[in-house]
């Protein structure tokens, strides 16, 4: 059988999403970003919104998201993506506007912008990657770092006396009147990936329908800074992250 004979549409079992380009990703092997990028790219194309999407990337590992997903992007200052997106959406009300942010960006330096954009009910979606650590800068403590978890700025483990407590910003978001859909997902298994994709699609649809602000947290791994193999990181996440950051919908008023 020749290669040409095999490469037929009926034999196609998997294809890279059309909006995901060929630029080699800078993410570490095993990182959750790649999977979430794929889901975001798929959902935009499936919704037919390629020509009407304006995305905002953060400061952190996903700063270069604009290199991989072929839509219009703005790169925001650290933590400010929800403010940036608020203005874009108000000025371009029929566009799909979303931010893609990590835990340090969204839940630490950008807490104010996050809470207020969500509470104003801006018709945007925030994709929130929570891997409980600062990835880009080399594994420092994040607002979502678990108690006892070791990072380079809490090398003996996070203790409340010194470092305070991990912040459940998604739970806070669910209490805000401006939010429509608040959910926590993960992408460590095929089942989880399918659920996460549905959640992203729902959030994007609600924001287009003008139902308020939407937050999709993806509990993620950072195997490099967690100092684990990708497989071990997934296992550690299930055993340690999920009990503190339980998966599922926290709020859905869009139904």
């Amino acid at each position: 059988m020749t290669k040409e004979e095999i490469m037929k549409p009926e034999n196609l079992v998997y294809r890279k999403p059309e909006l995901l380009n060929d630029t080699p990703m800078h993410y570490c092997p095993g990182c959750s970003h790649g999977v979430v990028h794929k889901l975001v790219a798929e959902v935009i194309a499936e919704m037919g919104m390629t020509e009407k999407t304006i995305a905002v990337s953060p400061v952190g590992c996903a700063v270069f998201a604009y290199n991989y997903i072929d839509v219009d992007w703005q790169e925001a200052a650290h933590g400010r993506a929800p403010a940036v997106a608020s203005a874009i959406k108000r000025l371009w009300p029929d566009h799909l506007v979303f931010t893609y942010q990590g835990d340090g960006d969204l839940a630490c330096i950008g807490t104010g912008e996050t809470i207020h954009a969500l509470n104003r009910g801006e018709n945007i979606t925030i994709i929130f990657i929570n891997n409980a650590i600062y990835g880009m800068t080399g594994g420092q403590m994040a607002p979502t770092t678990l108690l006892g978890m070791k990072t380079v700025t809490c090398p003996y483990g996070r203790v409340p006396e010194l470092h305070g407590y991990p912040l459940k910003i998604t739970e806070i978001a669910a209490t805000l009147q401006g939010t429509c859909y608040v959910t926590r997902q993960s992408v460590q298994s095929v089942g989880a990936i399918l659920k996460a994709k549905k959640a992203i699609r729902k959030a994007f649809e609600y924001s287009l329908q003008g139902k308020g602000s939407n937050l999709v947290e993806i509990v993620s791994t950072c195997n490099t800074n967690w100092r684990m193999t990708p497989e071990k990181a997934n296992q550690w996440m299930e055993e340690n992250m999920f009990p503190f950051y339980p998966l599922g919908d926290l709020k859905d008023t869009g139904k």
């Binding site: 703005q74 400010r80 403010a83």
Partner: peptide
């Protein structure tokens, strides 16, 4: 801080 970043979002579009 939010104001000027809103300006950034609008200006960039």
């Amino acid at each position: 801080v939010a104001s000027i970043n809103m300006v950034y979002g609008g200006a960039a579009s």
